[in-house]
Amino acid sequence: YMKHPLQNRWGLWFYKNDKSKMWQDNLRLITKFDTVEDFWALYNNIQPPSKLSSGCDYSMFKDGIEPMWEDRSNKCGGRWLITLAKQHRRTELDHFWLETLLCLIGEGFGSFSRDICGSVINIRAKGDKIAIWTSNAENCETVTYIGKKYKESLGLPQKLVIGYQAHADTATKSNSITKNKFVV
């Protein structure tokens, strides 16, 4: 029986908000995998996002990319951001997260998948967030394709608008609102 190889090796990271520690010390690489079977072995054995405590994150990034803006693969990039209302934690959150992971490991964006860095899910009392990070916020065609395909994969209604924010803008935003570089 041969395992099904993935195009990329991925790392799954966990972040728990412990204010007594430095930010980076709260970030842990759980494990890496590069086959479909190993993905499921991992996914089936970790808590679903809806069970995590507030302030926690999961991140899944291509091997060699760390889940932070500062990483050389992320610093010129941005993210398609899905913000969820509080009541969606029970109903949609885990489903959206799995669909996001399947999009990534299955190279669901075709040739545009080369711009994919990874995905982050933030569990927050004020509303959970899921994002797909890409490497170059200037690649308009690639970013727009990924946004449209991602909306489709999540089954989001056409009229629901999602925004893409460059990390550079998010990092330097003055108020709590970050301007969108693209919307679909």
């Binding site: 993935l6 479909v36 499921w40 075709g110 994969s153």
Partner: peptide
Amino acid sequence: GTRIIYDRKFLLDCRSSP
């Protein structure tokens, strides 16, 4: 070059196969 692409149905089927 080639790219290994799996659709979600295939990935979900792999989850249930032993």
